[in-house]
Structure formats: C-alpha cells, structure tokens
Amino acid sequence: MAAAAAAAAAEEEIAVKEPLDLIRLSLDERIYVKLRSDRELRGKLHAYDQHLNMILGDVEEIVTTVEIDDETYEEIVRTTKRTIPFLFVRGDGVILVSPPLRTA
C-alpha cells in the first residue's frame, strides 16, 4: 500500500500535464531564458513560481544592442556578455524558457 502510494507520488513528480511541469523537471539543470529588451540568460534553475519569477545560478547574460554609427549611419549590432553568480529574474520579462536538451 505504502509502495503503491510512493510509486504514485513518483509518477506525479515526472508527469507533464501543463506547461510549467516542464520547468519543474528542469530544476537544478541549466536552462535558456529569453527575456524582453533583447536579453538572453543561461543558468542553473534553482527556484521558480507560477509567474515565472526565477532564481538562476552561474548565469551568463547576453544583451544585444543595435547602435547607429554617427558617420556612416550603419547599424552596429553589439552583444554584451556578463556573468552573475546568483540572480533573481522577475517573471513579467520572460518570453520563453527552454529546458536542457535530453538525449536519452
């Protein structure tokens, strides 16, 4: 009886019924997050909630900016990288979350 309950609980843990279940399965794994204002993050998912507020660890942030050259008026696309050890991300800026690729 107890074993059956434990098995049911385990199944509950791996079941994917709604979108956020995929994020639950990515806990403690490195994920990719695309944010508004041309920002991308890669980091280890430590916490999240239903708003997609998140805490990420060992984060690499990439910001893409487009500037216009003063003389030639050409568009210059720049990417700026920085690393942040431990980061809270507010969910309202999140466009998409991509779980790690599973090959197994």
Binding site: I68, D70, Y73, E75
Partner: peptide
C-alpha cells in the same frame, strides 16, 4: 536627425 538619416541611407543596403 540621426534616425531620419539612417532611414534615408537604407536604400544603400548595408
């Protein structure tokens, strides 16, 4: 001006 110059130059197809 910077924005409008950029628009005018667009035909050059950078």
């Amino acid at each position: 001006l910077k924005g409008s110059m950029r628009k005018r130059m667009e035909f050059l197809d950078f």
